[in-house]
């Protein structure tokens, strides 16, 4: 059971690092938001990996609830960021056209 937890947790950390790299390196807004979502998914994945207690014992519900809350928070933040990006794009278009 420990190896599975470690394996999946390590994958989560790799996602975190990948997302962080992409966030720091890529400049367009959409790629930054995707990067953020992947970093978030990585951390949530670590939580779920910790909660897994083998096929026999039932998993730990607390991290599950945390991840559920985290997902909704992440999606609301993404929605706001996307709309801010859209508003910024419109404002830039106005400036170009003026």
């Amino acid at each position: 059971m420990l190896t599975a937890q470690f394996l999946y947790g390590a994958a989560g950390l790799m996602l975190f690092v990948l997302g962080l790299w992409s966030f720091l390196v890529h400049e367009p807004l959409l790629r930054k938001i995707i990067a953020l979502n992947i970093t978030g998914a990585g951390v949530f994945h670590v939580f779920i990996a910790i909660a897994y207690r083998g096929d026999t014992a039932p998993p730990d519900p607390v991290p599950h609830a945390l991840v559920l809350t985290g997902i909704v928070v992440a999606v609301s933040a993404t929605a706001l960021a996307l709309m801010l990006g859209a508003r910024l794009q419109d404002a830039e278009e106005e400036d170009q056209s003026r």
Partner: peptide, 29 residues
């Protein structure tokens, strides 16, 4: 990893709605 609730939520909200929002933004971009 035996986390059905979270899997459902991730599919519906994370991939579904988050994806839809990003798709709209991608098309606008």
């Amino acid at each position: 990893l035996r986390a059905p609730d979270v899997a459902l939520a991730e599919a519906a909200i994370g991939a579904g709605l988050g994806g839809a929002l990003m798709l709209a933004a991608a098309r606008r971009a």
